[in-house]
Simulated scan of single mutants.
Amino acid sequence: MSNPVKAFDSTSNAVGLQCPKCGSSMVLKDGIYGKFYSCSRFPRCKGTRSYLKM
Rank of each mutant, 00 (worst) to 15 (best):
residue 2 S to L: 12
residue 3 N to L: 13
residue 3 N to D: 10
residue 4 P to D: 10
residue 4 P to A: 05
residue 5 V to L: 09
residue 5 V to N: 08
residue 6 K to Y: 07
residue 6 K to Q: 13
residue 8 F to C: 02
residue 8 F to Y: 13
residue 9 D to C: 03
residue 9 D to Y: 01
residue 9 D to G: 04
residue 9 D to P: 00
residue 9 D to W: 04
residue 10 S to G: 01
residue 10 S to Y: 05
residue 10 S to F: 04
residue 10 S to V: 13
residue 11 T to P: 00
residue 11 T to K: 11
residue 11 T to I: 04
residue 12 S to L: 10
residue 12 S to G: 00
residue 12 S to T: 08
residue 13 N to W: 06
residue 16 G to F: 01
residue 16 G to I: 00
residue 17 L to G: 04
residue 17 L to A: 01
residue 18 Q to N: 15
residue 19 C to H: 01
residue 19 C to G: 09
residue 19 C to F: 02
residue 19 C to Q: 00
residue 19 C to W: 04
residue 21 K to W: 01
residue 21 K to L: 15
residue 22 C to K: 07
residue 23 G to Q: 07
residue 23 G to M: 06
residue 23 G to A: 07
residue 24 S to A: 15
residue 24 S to M: 05
residue 24 S to R: 12
residue 24 S to C: 13
residue 24 S to G: 14
residue 25 S to C: 03
residue 26 M to G: 03
residue 26 M to D: 09
residue 26 M to A: 02
residue 27 V to K: 13
residue 27 V to N: 03
residue 28 L to F: 07
residue 28 L to K: 14
residue 28 L to R: 14
residue 28 L to A: 14
residue 28 L to D: 04
residue 29 K to I: 13
residue 29 K to N: 08
residue 29 K to S: 09
residue 30 D to A: 13
residue 30 D to P: 01
residue 30 D to G: 03
residue 30 D to N: 14
residue 31 G to F: 12
residue 31 G to H: 10
residue 32 I to G: 07
residue 32 I to Y: 07
residue 32 I to E: 14
residue 32 I to F: 11
residue 33 Y to I: 03
residue 33 Y to E: 10
residue 34 G to F: 07
residue 34 G to H: 09
residue 35 K to W: 05
residue 35 K to I: 06
residue 35 K to G: 03
residue 36 F to R: 07
residue 36 F to T: 05
residue 37 Y to G: 09
residue 37 Y to M: 08
residue 37 Y to D: 12
residue 37 Y to E: 03
residue 39 C to S: 10
residue 39 C to T: 00
residue 40 S to N: 05
residue 40 S to E: 14
residue 40 S to W: 05
residue 41 R to M: 12
residue 41 R to H: 09
residue 41 R to V: 01
residue 41 R to E: 15
residue 42 F to M: 00
residue 43 P to V: 00
residue 43 P to M: 08
residue 43 P to Y: 00
residue 43 P to R: 03
residue 43 P to I: 02
residue 44 R to F: 13
residue 44 R to M: 08
residue 44 R to W: 05
residue 45 C to D: 05
residue 45 C to Q: 05
residue 45 C to A: 03
residue 46 K to C: 01
residue 46 K to A: 10
residue 47 G to L: 04
residue 47 G to T: 01
residue 49 R to L: 15
residue 50 S to K: 13
residue 50 S to N: 09
residue 51 Y to K: 06
residue 51 Y to V: 07
residue 51 Y to I: 04
residue 52 L to G: 07
residue 52 L to W: 00
residue 52 L to F: 09
residue 53 K to V: 12
residue 53 K to W: 02
residue 53 K to A: 14
residue 54 M to K: 15
residue 54 M to R: 11
